[in-house]
Design a protein around this nucleic acid. Structure first.
Length: 282
DNA sequence: GCCCAGGAGATGT
DNA sequence: ACATCTCATGGG
């Protein structure tokens, strides 16, 4: 894979990347919009306004600063060898098949605070509405960026209900206050998966599933295995076991896939949602 | 009108 | 530790 930077444009050539799938359909990020003949994508990530163009053999980022190249390198998870992940799950044919069906799907490393906000909003919600709520929440931020913990802590529960947050409104206010008061999300990167998970559970609106999403999509904890209604169904059908609750399913998946559990989960999730692999109704 | 959505929190056992 | 209920909101 080659990376070339010139005049605010950073191009990655020779890499498998499906922009539509990774940035929008995969439901791991909710800040990207697709425009202009379906090859251009735009977003404000951690205050950085960027445009991404899908190329035949890679993608390019427009309007970025040279000093932010490491940020974007991490964001798009360019250090990970996805072929190695595919090869790591040959013992589980359905997982191997799912990985091969979606070769351009990557797991992003997003800014933790933004990620925490979006997945608190995700609770018992659907993808299209999560995206609208994230967009609405940006009205409390600056220049299209997500509100900072300080900005959000200054917003009332009533204001959040007014834009449609519903019963998640108090969760957002409390967690914003907690982070404003010194809870460090970045420090969680240095902790083990289990220790970071326990700390995340102390935040309002964060349970096992949301914690796993934050760990997988923003803290580099690739062994995190978020179990939502889709993943629970798919695990019971494609990998039958004696696992009773969701916690047991998480343990099962981590036993099967180890450090790659979260990466594999993304492909399984999308194959189920898109119907690429049959998922009956039980 | 009913059921569902990348669930969490409170309560009761 | 586990089951059950409630919590807004919009879309199918």
């Amino acid at each position: 894979m080659d990376a070339v930077f010139s005049n605010g444009i950073l191009s990655f050539i020779g890499i498998k990347f499906d922009a539509r799938l990774t940035l929008i359909d995969s439901a791991q990020a909710f800040r990207w919009t697709q425009t202009e003949n379906e090859v251009c994508f735009r977003a404000v990530i951690d205050g950085r306004k960027v445009a991404l163009v899908q190329q035949k053999d890679g993608f390019s980022l427009h309007g970025i600063d040279e000093e932010d190249i490491p940020f974007w390198w991490s964001y798009f998870d360019l250090d990970r060898d996805y072929d190695a992940v595919v090869n790591s799950c040959t013992a589980y044919p359905t997982a191997h098949r799912a990985m091969k069906l979606l070769p351009g799907l990557r797991v992003l490393n997003q800014p933790p605070w933004e990620t925490l906000l979006t997945f608190i909003l995700s609770a018992n919600n659907n993808v299209s509405r999560i995206r609208k709520l994230v967009s609405q929440l940006d009205t409390f931020g600056t220049n299209g960026a997500a509100p900072t913990p300080e900005q959000l802590a200054a917003v009332s529960e009533e204001q959040l209900r007014a834009i449609g947050c519903g019963y998640r409104a108090p969760y957002l206010v409390k967690t914003a206050q907690t982070v404003k008061d010194g809870f460090s999300l970045d420090e969680l990167r240095q902790l083990s998966y289990d220790d970071a998970h326990k700390k995340l559970l102390t935040l309002s609106g964060v349970g096992d599933k949301v914690a796993d999403c934050v760990q997988l999509f923003s803290l580099g904890h690739s062994e995190a295995f978020p179990v939502d209604v889709w993943v629970e169904r798919l695990m019971r059908q494609w990998f039958p076991s004696d696992a009773k609750g969701k916690r047991a399913i998480v343990r099962q998946a981590r036993d099967m896939f180890g450090k790659n559990a979260g990466i594999v989960q993304q492909s399984l999730f999308h194959c189920a949602r898109l119907g690429l692999i049959e998922l009956g109704t039980v």
